[in-house]
Every structure is written in C-alpha cells, then in structure tokens.
C-alpha cells in the first residue's frame, strides 16, 4: 500500500546542513522523496516559485532573510505562488515572544528543536487531519490563530470512526 505522501513536494529552508539532512531523512521515512532545499529565505522564495511545494519546513533564525520574513512573503506577497501552503516553522527559540511572532507571521505549525520524528509527524498529522480556516484580518493573512474545531469542514478522517466512511481505492 502507498504511504499517501509519495506525490508530495516538500521544501526545506534551513541554514544548517545537519538539520537539513535530518529533516530530509525524516520526510523520506514517510515517503516524501521530492524534496528541495534552500539555505536561507531568499533562496527559499526562488525555490518556492520554481518547485511549487505542497509542504514547507523552515527554520526561524537565518541570515539574509529569516523564517518570519519568508513566511510573511509566502502569505502576503502578490507574487507568492501559494499563500495557503502549510508552513512548519522549526526553531530553537521557543520563548513565548518568539512563538507569538511566528504565529503572527502566519505559520501553520511550530516545531521545537531538538527535533524528533514523533514531533514532526504530529505536526504533519495536524495539517492533514485538522486543517484550519484562513483568516484575513487587518494586516494578517494566514491560518486561524485560534485553535478550534472547524465546524462544517467536510474532511471525513478526523476521528477513527470517520475513517470507516472513507472509500480507499
């Protein structure tokens, strides 16, 4: 049986080559093999335009263009190829003010370093299982910052019992 992820394209924006290798290995283990890499935000934007990834993993602290600026570009720039693309921000800066900054930039999920497979997979599961509404409010555009169950969402795989209703080809 396929993994479900094999057609996905991912982009890793991270200035540390060791972290890029770890993330690539973890994505490979769930079946994502089409992975582009960039070592800072500006290169990430170029790659985003060229490769049109379905999932972005970005570091927060990078020189030239950091993960916050990168995320704001993706969400708000008129030239952004996909303002809705899920962005998982990976950071060692887990203090409250950094977390709030990331949330306000429009990240979908936040992942603290040191990374573990379980933590990364749980963030990806959130994106698959509980996609959030997007909100445009004042100068913010991004996933709804209030975490709640989205009423009316027709995704059938939320709960285990829902899975019985899904037709799998």
């Amino acid at each position: 049986m396929s993994d479900g992820f094999e057609y996905l394209k991912a982009l890793i924006v991270e200035d540390n080559s060791h972290m890029r290798s770890l993330l690539r290995a973890l994505l490979n283990s769930i079946g994502i093999t089409d992975i582009a890499e960039a070592s800072q935000g500006k290169a990430g934007i170029e790659t985003l335009r060229l490769r049109r990834p379905d999932l972005v993993l970005t570091d927060l602290a990078m020189k030239q263009m950091d993960g916050l600026e990168f995320t704001r570009y993706v969400r708000n720039d008129p030239n952004s190829p996909n303002p809705f693309v899920p962005i998982i921000m990976i950071t060692g800066h887990t203090e409250k003010h950094h977390v709030e900054e990331a949330r306000d930039a429009g990240v979908t999920e936040l992942l603290a370093k040191p990374i573990t497979a379980a933590n990364l997979f749980s963030r990806i599961a959130e994106i698959v299982e509980r996609p959030r509404a997007f909100v445009r409010c004042g100068d913010y555009f991004g996933p709804d910052r209030r975490r709640h169950r989205t009423e009316g969402y027709k995704g059938p795989w939320r709960r285990a019992e829902d899975m019985e209703d899904v037709e799998v080809g």
Partner: peptide
C-alpha cells in the same frame, strides 16, 4: 475578518490520500 474555510482552499493532500497519510504517520 474574512474567513476561508479548509474546504475552500487547496489542501496538502486529498481526502482520499489523507486516510493513508494518517495511517503512515
């Protein structure tokens, strides 16, 4: 605030693949 529900924008995986993805994870 303008709200765009998940069914109204492209998702990372289709609903059918979503089940397989969760099983994989």
């Amino acid at each position: 605030a303008e709200l765009i529900e998940p069914d109204d924008y492209p998702q990372m995986v289709s609903k059918r693949d979503g089940l397989r993805c969760m099983q994989t994870l």
